[in-house]
Design a binder for these strands. Structure first.
Length: 569
RNA sequence: GCGCCCAUGGCUCAAUUGGAUAGAGCAACAGAUUUCUAAUCUGUGGGUUGCAGGUUCGAGUCCUGCUGGGCGCGCCA
């Protein structure tokens, strides 16, 4: 049961108006409070406490109310009956939305032939958790991995391979796509090609020009380049798949990126031309998206660069067109780096002006940077920009060391599970918008507010439940201890939290909730022994029931965060 | 220069979107295990919420101005 919702509706019915219900920061005040008397006092021409006094008898009539009182300037504090809590607490279940929406989510955005870097971490983790939450609430989602598989890097990589192996048939005029080519690319080598080529292009203008030429021919359908591209694309897709598995995120509904979007450039251009939106400027074709009301200059949207090539701007707009056709979503949400805000503002305006998709149905959730302890973007010990694998490796090493130190013996799968939880929970814990500091040494400690703490709590509960073995059913009335009561109330707050996390696009809410739930659980665990001989049967049954509810609730939260509960730790 | 974002104990972060005595974790110190996993639990100290005004019953939260920091501003994605 969503206790907040239940109580709120009952109170509104009783009072005959919408009273804003709060959960007091200080639990000593009560389970709920409302400032209705303070808000209404002015209109009623009464002082708040006086008005509150008029509401009291009505609220006392509600059958779940144990106590109502007035405090401070006119707050009404409400305490719920223990037995009502015990009898109505339930573990969360997949919900059915009254107004199910179709939502397109764009996250991940992995690149072909470029290993994933630390920036991919947040888009993957936050996007995935938001996707899971949205599904849990009963909405329909489509996740899009908008792969970078069409732009300048493709030209650079092909040019680089040409430089290494100019004799390959891909580069000959008589290339025949039907004949197999005896050439295999090593995955590790492939990951080096782009950085190497990119570096060279900055110092060697001949090579740079060659890469640009190749990019243009490639996009125009050059058969040799395309065959080579297909070869390294296949390797990259496999790598991406491994990443998805390694991060334990849901498989994408679409692994379709720029190349797919490029197919829709033609119909989009037709629309843009009909509306006279494309303007020639300085050799490039641009779309003017500025408005009179802007208080800052908004640069134009680049439809085609001065060499006539597709751009990030054009494929992104075409991608919107494609999604509208395929999914017809109520909303399109992008999870990317905060620094791309201006790009998305431009995209949303362009799409709106073209009548492809309305401005106010787009959302861009920009996340901050993951920094090192020095406050600058996180780097590995050797001073390089950290790759996604580096982060996971660092966490794995730390967990291994911690386990060895404790004398426990855990298999490598369990260690990986714990390490991933450390990284993901830490990421989810922070407000998406703000930068955060990734400190490997605090990951090493695993004390307190960490992923391992969350998992440990679940493992402990699970251990008791397994040991108990007995059938667990709703107990008869028994006197709740403070720990039992607080835990049950938190369990009944799950739905409100998830809804709030969804509405605010704030995945950190679920991480913070999971932590609070764990604290209360460990409190309960410590103070309320279950399987001890001196515990009366009725209390034993009651505590087992509460432990089961806590476990199921925690397990749901853990699942929504994309973590896994190990068997032991 | 213009625009967006941020500033909360020594450190890292919260604060139900305007509510009551600003909460957690780390670090420090003191304690708890004949008992279901001590990666746990309990306690202590630590704050003029960057500065100055304003709005109101009430401000960390909203408005204005400063100071300090991050980011962005046409052919990268």
């Amino acid at each position: 049961m969503n206790l907040y919702k239940y109580v709120s509706e009952a109170i509104n019915n009783k009072l005959g108006f919408e009273a804003k219900l709060d959960v007091p920061k200080n639990r000593d005040f009560g389970d709920f409070s409302t400032n209705a008397a303070m808000v209404g006092a002015k209109n009623a021409g009464k002082n708040p406490r006086e008005l509150a006094n008029e509401y009291l008898p009505l609220l006392k009539e509600l059958d779940f109310v144990a106590d109502v009182s007035i405090a401070g300037p006119g707050f009404i504090n409400i305490k719920i009956k223990d037995d009502f809590i015990l009898q109505n607490a339930t573990a969360p279940k997949q919900m059915v939305s009254e107004k199910p929406l179709t939502i397109d989510m764009d996250y991940g955005a992995y690149n072909v032939a470029k290993s994933l870097h630390i920036g991919h971490l947040r888009t993957s983790i936050v996007g995935d958790t938001f996707n899971r939450i949205t599904k849990f609430l009963g909405h329909k989602t489509f996740s899009w991995n908008h792969i970078g598989d069409w732009g300048k890097p493709m030209g650079l990589i092909i040019a680089w391979i040409e430089r290494l192996h100019p004799e390959l048939p891909y580069f000959q005029n008589d290339f025949d796509p039907s004949k197999p080519v005896d050439y295999e690319i090593d995955e590790k080598e492939l990951n080096n090609y782009y950085p190497q080529a990119s570096a060279l292009s900055k110092t060697d203008s001949v090579f740079q020009a060659r890469a640009q030429e190749i990019k243009a021919k490639f996009q125009a359908g050059h058969p040799g380049y395309f065959a080579l591209y297909e070869k390294f694309l296949a390797i990259s897709l496999r790598t991406m798949n491994n990443t998805v598995k390694r991060l334990n995120i849901l498989p994408f509904d679409y692994d379709l990126g720029e190349r797919n979007a490029a197919k829709y450039l033609e119909p989009v251009e037709k629309i843009l031309r009909e509306k006279n939106m494309i303007v020639e400027d300085d050799g490039a074709q641009i779309i003017n998206v500025k408005r009179d009301t802007d208080n800052a200059p908004i640069p134009p949207y680049m439809w085609r660069d001065s060499r006539g090539a597709d751009t990030y701007d054009s494929t992104d707009l075409a991608a919107v067109y494609c999604r509208k056709l395929k999914d017809n979503p109520d909303t399109i949400i992008y999870f990317t780096d905060l620094r791309q805000s201006l790009h998305f503002e431009q995209l949303f305006r362009a799409a709106d002006m073209a009548g492809i998709y309305p401005y106010d149905k787009f959302e861009h959730i920009g996340y901050g940077t993951i920094n090192g302890k020095d406050g600058k973007p996180f780097k590995t010990r050797d001073g390089n920009a950290a790759g996604l694998d580096d982060i996971i490796d660092i966490a794995n090493e730390a967990v291994s060391a911690r386990v060895a130190e404790s004398g426990k013996k855990l298999d490598s799968e369990t260690i990986k599970t714990i390490a991933l939880a450390a990284v993901k929970f830490n990421d989810l814990l922070h407000d998406v918008k703000s930068d955060y500091i990734f400190d490997p040494s605090s990951i090493t400690s695993f004390e307190g507010k960490t992923g391992p703490y969350i998992l440990y709590t679940a493992v402990r509960l699970n251990s008791v439940l397994k040991r108990a073995g007995a059938q667990i059913s709703k107990p008869e009335q028994f006197e709740l201890s403070t720990e039992e009561r607080n835990l049950l109330i938190e369990i009944m707050d799950f739905e409100r939290t998830i809804l709030s996390a969804y509405e605010n696009r704030a995945t950190d809410m679920i991480a913070n909730y999971a932590y609070d739930l764990c604290q209360l659980t460990n409190n309960f665990y410590h103070n309320c022994p279950i399987l001890r001989d001196d515990i009366p049967e009725n209390i034993k049954a009651g505590r087992l029931y509460i432990a089961k509810l806590a476990f199921d609730t925690l397990a749901t939260a853990i699942d929504l965060m994309g973590l896994k509960i190990p068997d032991e730790m």
